[in-house]
């Protein structure tokens, strides 16, 4: 049965500046799952990178640095210090890769969304569906990474159980912003900007050394980056340094994600429904 949107829902979405959708975003996810059944190898590669970092840095650098004092004052091994950061980064990488490269290809070359929008699906379904898939991908990488971290004996707090939902949340924020940004790209050259944004963030979001090691002004700059909030959130959970302050990071990522979803849906609407 073709399911028309519920009258109440469509009345609300019509009143708000939210692009139209038919509540069928899950079918976009289903499309991606079907497609990846043919190329699941591509899913595997994204998993190894953070694991390799964990062992090269955690074990290698960890041998030189006996312990680290976190910004919240705990003293931990270097491996335990970087593991949460790499967890956040793996969520970011999985989500950003999918929501930029893959979305760009579908939008500009395969014209997949044009096909979707000829059905009851609306731009909101496309945006929500793609972002859900990307965050799922980020979530899978993070889940596997967390498992490796647990097996490596780097995780001790029960709060770490929340590390996975938190990673999915981080993936959500990055997938949404990634897709939004992608709608502005018109050529593959523009992906240099993605790399330009991701790499420094990966290195300097208090990932590999505590925020306190940065000079004062730079600390504020770091605090503005989204990955910093992801790292701080995961570190708080995995090291059991939990406090109300973590909600601030949650709020930042949530706001970023919502702006991304709305922006992406609006842009898809503007680009394809003219």
């Amino acid at each position: 049965m073709s399911a028309p949107p519920l009258p109440a829902v469509s009345r609300v979405t019509r009143a708000l500046p939210i692009p139209a959708g038919a509540g069928l975003a899950r079918m976009v996810v289903l499309r991606n799952v079907t497609s990846f059944r043919h190329g699941w190898i591509a899913l595997i590669s994204g998993f190894f990178e953070p694991v390799l970092y964990l062992f090269s840095l955690g074990v290698g650098v960890g041998a030189l640095v006996p312990s680290v004092t976190t910004d919240r004052g705990s003293v931990v091994t270097y491996a335990a210090f970087v593991a949460p950061a790499l967890l956040a980064a793996s969520a970011m990488n999985g989500a950003v890769f999918d929501s930029t490269f893959n979305v760009f290809f579908k939008l500009r070359y395969a014209k997949l969304y044009d096909g979707m929008l000829a059905t009851p699906l609306g731009p909101r379904d496309v945006a929500v569906g793609e972002i859900a898939w990307s965050l799922g991908r980020g979530g899978i990488y993070s889940g596997l990474f967390l498992l490796v971290a647990v097996l490596a004996g780097l995780v001790h707090s029960w709060w770490s159980l929340l590390g996975l939902p938190a990673a999915v949340f981080i993936a959500f924020a990055f997938a949404a912003v990634g897709m939004f940004a992608t709608t502005f790209m018109t050529s593959w050259v523009h992906f240099e900007y993605v790399t330009l944004a991701i790499q420094p963030m990966f290195l300097f979001s208090a990932t590999f050394f505590p925020l306190s090691t940065y000079p004062g002004l730079l600390q504020w700059l770091v605090r503005l980056t989204p990955l910093y909030h992801g790292v701080a959130l995961e570190r708080g959970l995995l090291l059991g340094e939990v406090g109300a302050g973590l909600l601030w990071h949650v709020g930042y990522l949530l706001a970023l994600g919502l702006v991304g979803v709305l922006g992406a849906a609006r842009r898809i609407e503007g680009l394809l429904l003219r």
Binding site: S2, T34, S35, A110, M116, T119
Partner: peptide
């Protein structure tokens, strides 16, 4: 959808209609 097979193209497109 070049990433899907011939029949998958039909299946998935049908799902977009909520079938």
């Amino acid at each position: 959808d070049d990433e899907l097979t011939v029949e998958e193209n039909l299946w998935i497109y049908g799902r977009y209609f909520g079938l």
